[in-house]
Simulated assay, not measured.
Amino acid sequence: MKIDDLKKKLVSLQSFIYFDENNFLREKCSNEDALQRVIINFERAIFECKNWSKTEELIFLYGTIGNLYRIKGEAKSAIEALTKAVELSEGNKQIVNLIRLGEALKYAEQHQQALSTFNAVIDQCAIEEHSQLLDFAFQHKGKCLLELEEMSAANECFRKAMDLRVRKGDESLINSTQRALELIKLHGGLE
């Protein structure tokens, strides 16, 4: 299957992906069968791509399937795929896959490893060429801290993410961070 066809399948899957307000805004899928079909297509593509040794395609495939496994709740498979994506990538692609890996670690209840990963990403994002991803690093670190009930530290991360997102002017990202800040209030956190 061609990469463009796989990307179309991902777009169709987006209508089933949501953030669970009752579970710390973790991503979930309301159509497990559709998710599994997309995963199977990506697994086939990875097998084919390994035979071609096209690194850019492998990075995309491993990163995406890792993300899909995480959403499905298969954290071990997610961590394995995302670790490969991180090993193969560099620059912004490596940072994106490190953030995804941190999320997979969080879903696997390995919160301290997730925090270490997010902190490494924040350090990497301090370099000017990667700074456009810093808001994502703070957002995901904040969500991890929220699950650990470290409300003050989570709030601080969300505030940093919000400042960066307001500068970007991306309403969907601003709304995402606003929902996270509201979740802190719901859980008896800061005002």
Results as ranks from 00 to 15, higher is better:
I79Y: 01
E57H: 07
R37A: 14
I99F: 03
N51R: 14
K54Q: 14
F24I: 08
E57N: 09
E27R: 12
Q36D: 15
F42T: 00
Q112S: 12
K106E: 13
K28N: 08
S12A: 14
K8Q: 09
T55P: 01
N97R: 05
L25W: 07
N51A: 15
E27Y: 02
F24S: 06
Q94A: 12
E43L: 10
S116R: 12
V86W: 04
D20C: 06
Q110E: 11
A85L: 00
I40D: 09
E103N: 13
V11W: 02
S30R: 11
A104D: 00
L58W: 00
V11K: 07
K93E: 14
L61E: 00
V96K: 07
R44T: 15
L82R: 00
K9N: 10
E74T: 11
V96N: 07
S30E: 11
I59M: 01
W52I: 15
K28W: 05
F24T: 05
V38P: 04
E109D: 09
E74G: 05
Q113V: 05
T83I: 03
I39R: 00
L82Y: 00
L25R: 03
N22V: 10
S15R: 14
Q112Y: 03
K54R: 15
S53R: 15
I99M: 03
E43M: 11
I40T: 12
N51W: 12
N31K: 11
L35N: 07
S12V: 13
V121N: 01
S15V: 15
K8D: 09
L105T: 06
V121F: 07
F118N: 05
Q110F: 03
Q14A: 14
Y69K: 02
S89I: 08
K50W: 13
V96P: 03
A120Q: 15
I46E: 02
V96D: 07
I17R: 04
N23I: 06
G91P: 08
E57P: 02
N67T: 11
G63M: 00
F118S: 06
G91L: 12
A120Y: 14
V38W: 03
L58V: 03
L88Q: 07
N119V: 11
V96G: 04
L61W: 02
L101W: 01
G102I: 02
K54L: 15
V11M: 05
V38Y: 05
F24D: 09
S30T: 11
N51Y: 14
E80C: 08
L82V: 02
E80N: 10
I40Y: 10
F24G: 00
Q110A: 04
K106N: 12
V38G: 02
R26G: 07
K76C: 07
K9P: 06
F118A: 06
Y18H: 08
G63S: 05
C29D: 08
F118T: 05
E32M: 13
F42A: 05
L101F: 05
A45K: 04
N67G: 08
I17G: 05
K50F: 13
A120E: 15
G73S: 05
L82N: 00
E32G: 12
Q113T: 07
T64N: 08
F47G: 11
E43N: 11
I79K: 03
F19G: 11
S89W: 02
Y62H: 04
T64D: 02
A45M: 04
N67Y: 09
I39N: 01
G102N: 00
L25F: 09
N23L: 06
K50H: 14
N92W: 12
Q94Y: 06
A108I: 02
K28H: 06
